[in-house]
């Protein structure tokens, strides 16, 4: 049981580390948002599952916490990306924007 828990926690810590490394490495706001939310969601999720294997009496509460992370994290990243697109932050390399018109104006 402890071995499975350690494996899950290790995966979680690894993905959290990769997510925080992506914030440093990526050039763009949107790419940074992608690394910082997707990888961190997986990291928190598997860490929580690992803790649940360590202490099975907390499992229900931990599933609730994981559920809330699973719901709130995409909404937060969506609203951050939406706000940064509305205020006019552009991509670093590829200037094509699918949300704009053909002339490059906002819809």
């Amino acid at each position: 049981m402890i071995f499975i828990a350690i494996i899950f926690i290790f995966i979680g810590v690894l993905f959290s580390f990769l997510g925080s490394l992506g914030i440093l490495r990526m050039k763009d706001t949107y790419n940074r948002l992608q690394t910082s939310t997707k990888a961190t969601t997986l990291g928190a999720f598997s860490t929580i599952i690992g803790v649940g294997f360590l202490n099975p009496s907390w499992f229900f509460k931990l599933i609730l916490i994981a559920f809330f992370i699973l719901i709130t994290s995409p909404i937060a990243s969506h609203s951050l990306a939406r706000a940064s697109h509305k205020t006019g932050i552009k991509l670093e390399e590829n200037q094509f924007d699918a949300l704009n018109n053909e002339n490059g104006e906002k819809k």
Partner: peptide, 18 residues
């Protein structure tokens, strides 16, 4: 203020009672 999008509306409607 800006109009909220569909995802924000559903998420907020889910989260605020809790």
């Amino acid at each position: 203020f800006e109009e909220p999008s569909f995802l924000q509306i559903t998420g907020v409607k889910f989260v605020t009672p809790f």
